[in-house]
Amino acid sequence: MPAIVPTTTAKTDAPAASSGSSQRRSRTAYLLLLPGLGWLGVFFVIPIATLFFTSLQAPVEGRSGVYQAAFQISNYAQALGDYWPQFVRSFIYAGLATVLALVIAYPLAYFIAFKAGRWRALMLVLVVAPFFASFLLRTYAWRTILADEGAITTALNALHLLPEDRILNTSIAVVLGLTYNFLPFMILPLYASLEKIDPRLIEASGDLYARPFTGFRKVVFPLSLPGVVAGTLLTFIPAAGDFINARLLGAPGDSMVGTAIQVNFLQFRDYPIASALSFILMAFILVVVFTYIRRAGTEDLV
């Protein structure tokens, strides 16, 4: 027995030393993560939890704008009952804007990735450049472009294409605004995944008797799917929560769920209803997102 003891310690010595150093390494990792993740914990996770608790609060009798802890699930029923049109509008508007943005963005992303040559860097700068100009002012500028006496509305009216004889202050304007605002979020991920495709693949598909459009459908588009997924998410999420476009470009009847949340929080001070609306919106978005994640894996998306 005594002879075995030193042997075993000698054998376990090396792994013990290396696991000690990997423990030290992971301690460094946790120290690096601590401030940032701590911040997200306190100012993202806890607020979401608070939002949930607030959404169940009940009003204090006789004092408007003051609420107390409760378990009032009926807040959710009330929120959905009162604001289901806003939810429906949000998802229809955001969905339409996402599809429109995809259709508009794809040719540009394709061109930058495969045809732009030495203009590529410049074109990418130009795609990002709108971010340098104020979001609110750019949105507000559409009031000028789509104005009732403006060239676009007049021309379309002459052709009798507009159901309400105008664009501004209709849902069309809201969808157009959403499409415009989040277009770069569609272009950039599309470009990133198109750029990784070897252009010789397109030539190869042509060589193998695929007509240009078939080659696109069978080769390029499937390979760009990660970009399509990322782009649609990055467009749909902010569009579904937006209330700026509905307010600046739409009529009061075009309000979206973001409008309802903002108004309930900041004007009516009906915190439980506002929180319930916010929580439902987040839950819905997360369901959409995680259906995608199941296909891509978290590491890919971050």
Binding site: F44, I48, T50, I237, Q262, L281, V289
Partner: peptide, 13 residues
Amino acid sequence: ATPEVVLGSSLLA
């Protein structure tokens, strides 16, 4: 992946 309106309102809460 969270809409800004949720981020803003939850922090306000």
